[in-house]
Amino acid sequence: MAEQLQVFGFWESAFSRRVELALKLKGIEYQYFEEDLPHNKSHLLLQYNPIHKKVPVLVHNGKPISESLVILEYIDENWKTNPLLPQHPHDRAVARFWAKFIDDKVVVAVVKAAGSKGEEREKAVEEAGEALGALEKELGSRTLFGGERVGFVDVVGSVIVGWVPAIEECFGFEVLRVNKFPNLMKWSEEFAKHGVVKEILPPKHEIVAFMEANWKF
């Protein structure tokens, strides 16, 4: 029996797009369902993700998996072609650490900066800069976090490539600077040129327009 694979996502969601990016990199076919967010969530989304009620959700042969980092690991474990995580257990653990670091430190600080002003924003921008500095050091002179090809941390880091610059433009502050983070900026430029990444990441101006219309702080 043929496998059934469905993705419930939303075009502007960095977390949703990273799931599609992983599937595309592995050459896995799937059926995509675009959710009408943030206003009208489908009954299927609420059925498959009753706890968080949000995208992304991967449904494999009728069984749902939610939370993007969990989904990425599930994809990598089930489909071995073009592995995202390294083969060595220690290297896998390190990749998981930095992926979670991106979500817990970089994303949280940048969103906090977008939703604040004055001293609170300055503090959040400083926190984001410190987190990016740690990533800058971890990346070093490598072209990709995954080494010679796109890996787990690169896929998770797509939020820095596509969404952080849009947030900066929309809310009028700057975190990513080439003079402070030359390695990350070079990585971001090269990663954005990848054929699959270009196919999956939405244009910055579309993200900015959505944020201006829907992000209310």
Rank of each mutant, 00 (worst) to 15 (best):
A213K: 15
V196F: 11
W187G: 08
G147T: 06
P83G: 11
E77C: 10
K80P: 15
P203I: 08
N40V: 14
F173L: 04
C170P: 02
V106D: 02
M211H: 15
S158H: 12
K198I: 05
R92V: 03
N40H: 15
I75H: 02
P182G: 05
A14Y: 04
L44H: 15
N183R: 12
V159D: 04
E120A: 02
E136S: 13
A22V: 10
E190A: 07
K54H: 04
S13E: 02
S116W: 00
E34D: 14
E189K: 14
V94D: 06
F210E: 07
L85Y: 02
D154W: 07
A192M: 05
R18I: 11
A99F: 06
G133I: 03
G140N: 13
N82Q: 13
A2M: 11
R17H: 13
Y74I: 02
G151S: 10
W98E: 06
A124Y: 00
I207Q: 10
A99H: 11
E190H: 09
D36L: 10
V108C: 03
N61P: 00
M185P: 01
K123Y: 02
I71H: 05
K123N: 07
E127G: 06
I71G: 08
I75V: 11
Q87E: 14
F101N: 10
E136N: 13
G151N: 07
V208H: 01
D103V: 11
Q31P: 12
V161T: 09
L72E: 07
K186Q: 11
L23A: 13
A2D: 09
V159M: 14
R177P: 03
V55Y: 01
L23S: 10
L25G: 10
V110R: 00
E169N: 14
Q87K: 13
V159F: 13
Q31W: 00
L85Q: 02
A113I: 00
E20C: 10
R96S: 02
V178N: 04
S141Q: 15
N78W: 05
M185N: 05
F181Q: 05
V156M: 13
M211D: 11
H194G: 07
A93Y: 06
I65H: 01
E73Q: 15
G195E: 15
V196T: 10
D76K: 07
H205K: 09
Q87M: 07
H43S: 15
L69V: 08
A166L: 07
R142A: 11
S68E: 03
A209L: 06
A95Y: 08
P202N: 03
R177C: 07
H90Q: 14
K112R: 10
L85W: 04
V108G: 00
K53F: 06
E212D: 14
I51H: 01
R18S: 11
A128M: 05
D154A: 08
S116E: 04
P56S: 01
V108Y: 03
K123I: 02
E126D: 14
F8T: 03
I51G: 02
W163C: 07
K80D: 12
S116F: 00
